[in-house]
């Protein structure tokens, strides 16, 4: 039977707890906020938490930067997760800028960046299409 609460385990993984909190804050903002701009902020928070998760897992206590110097026994941190995150940061920046560009376009065409209002306009356009369809319902040709 596993122990329900293991204080040593919980404290020993303090960094991960913090990242989980940050990650879920970001995800919550994406889901709960109606402002498109704030959603992007939440998305960034979410991604940054993941970056930090990666970076901290490559860190070794007492390790330095992985640069080869005279002492071959020098303890160094794992550089691979750090390099991966460099790529992921670039991807994150690209995503953010594309998201912001889309928001600018949405603001230009819809005149708002509130999700509710954008959805409302979308629904009105859909309702107009349905009304159009019912108005000129075509007559069936004679099947015979």
């Amino acid at each position: 039977m596993e122990r329900i609460f293991d204080a040593e385990f919980a404290l020993g993984h303090m960094n991960y707890w913090l990242f989980v909190i940050l990650m879920m804050t970001g995800l919550y903002i994406v889901v709960a906020r109606g402002n498109l701009l704030k959603k992007i902020v939440g998305l960034n928070l979410f991604q940054v938490a993941v970056f930090m998760l990666y970076i901290s897992m490559g860190k070794i206590a007492g390790g330095t930067a992985p640069i080869l110097i005279d002492n071959p026994d020098q303890l160094y941190s794992n550089p691979l997760p750090h390099v991966l995150i460099l790529t992921a940061i670039v991807v994150g920046v690209a995503t953010t800028s594309l998201g912001l560009a889309l928001i600018v376009r949405i603001n230009e065409t819809y005149g708002t960046i509130e999700e509710d209002e954008v959805l409302e306009i979308d629904h009105q356009m859909y309702a107009a299409e349905v009304a159009e369809m019912n108005k000129n319902k075509p007559v069936k040709t004679d099947a015979a």
Binding site: V30, L43, T95, G99, L102, R105, I106, T109, Y110, L119
Partner: peptide, 10 residues
């Protein structure tokens, strides 16, 4: 298309 692209992005 814009709101669809935004939803897809998120």
């Amino acid at each position: 298309a814009l709101s669809a692209a935004y939803d897809y992005l998120i």
